[in-house]
Design a protein around this nucleic acid. Sequence first.
RNA 1: GUGGGUGUAGCUCAGUUGGCAGAGCAUCAGGUUGUGGCCCUGAGGGUCGUGGGUUCAAGCCCCAUCACUCACCCCA
Length: 431
Amino acid sequence: MIQLVRGFKDILPDEIGAWNRIEKTTADLLASFGFSEIRLPILEKTELFRRSIGEMTDIVEKEMYTFPGSRDEMLTLRPEATASVARAYIQQRLYAVDPIQKLYTIGPMFRKERPQKGRYRQFYQINAEVFGIESPLVDAQLIVMLWSLFKRLEIFNLSVHINSLGCPACRPEFKNLLSGNLSSRGELLCADCQRRREKNPLRVLDCKVPSCQDAIAGAPVMSDFLCQACARHFDSVKRALNQQEIPYIINHRLVRGLDYYCRTAFEIQTTQLGTQNAVAGGGRYDGLVEALGGPSMPAVGFAVGIDRLVDILLQRGPQPGSVPDVFIAPLGDEAIRRSFEWSCALSLADIKTEADFSGKSLKALMKRADRVGADFVLIAGDQELQNGSVVVRNMKTKEQTSVPIDKIARQIKELITKKIRNPEASSQKSE
RNA sequence: GUGGGUGUAGCUCAGUUGGCAGAGCAUCAGGUUGUGGCCCUGAGGGUCGUGGGUUCAAGCCCCAUCACUCACCCCA
């Protein structure tokens, strides 16, 4: 048997309800915040990611699906979307139409990591990016938007972590200071951090090895070394979050894994998954557009891990799926032929219809009707055909009525609308 | 990339010191010639992940390999 690729997965009907809910909620919410959807290729030139994400990141070093394309060019399945969105913003000259662009995209990303709970080699993200606005209020607005997305999805037990990474004016000095501070207690650091200390000392800050945590306990924190502009920016973000009553944690250890981030960095974590607990992350990347050959342009954005949200939603049991309104149970060859006609007509009239053409016994048909959860069953045998009618059975009340064949669609529609109004009252009673 | 755990029916899992491959659920059929859920009866369904090895004999022991899973790491 040929099996699917390691770390990839099939999304089956039993969880598609959760996916649809997340995507629909996102589309509605982001539209009200002024975002437009874009759709981009999943394949890009490798160079794009090397330049944007950073040569020395784990993603670029060892996690990308890269292979030769045409004309000596290497291609890569995108490991994240921000680089592609920025590329499109530049290439399509969107900044010339209006430097301010609020864009979002939903789709698969690919990273060759070891699979784990909440971590897949093909995973799905919602990416939202705002170009052309320097105001810290936009940073805060993105967090507000995320917060309300999770609220609408009824996902709670979340914490918002924020930090400021500084900017090219103040970060280099801090890096040097930190590096010097860490080398004074280099003995304590784990092997990875020994390496990081020189290449990118910021990454030592979010190392989880206990001895490293001890080593950095007294280390300087970025927020004490922010330049005046960065400090004011960070303060505004915090004030805006306070104003919207969004609880947050200032996390000096929060260092994004991608090189392009500056100033605001944030991550939203859940307690409902395993150790892969980040459901969203993002921040400001003012230098990226220019670094990719575009105009100097501020930008800020985030990514949401859809797979992880689905995992959380599914913990609460299956999400409501689609069940047929009507099940057609024909008896005998003539009835089966006619039921084909009826099922087409009903489906085309927007009635969710399921017909069984197998010719099995009525008992078997009824069992199947019950299993698929149909509200009504349309029974047609020789008797009914002779007098030009069919039997409609209400599966809940067991009521059966005879309906003339030429009035099937209208009758069913009437029954369904009645059902939609009634069960609300009855389900409230039962609670 | 590194470590731990697990692979037996569609699903969840038993399987004793190595000795005929099992249960529950699900499916299908019958009990009821044309009426679902409950009940009863029966049936189908297996390369015991894969490949080697030890043995008279391997689901069980040994080696390798693959997959799943959890954690490290990294991140959404």
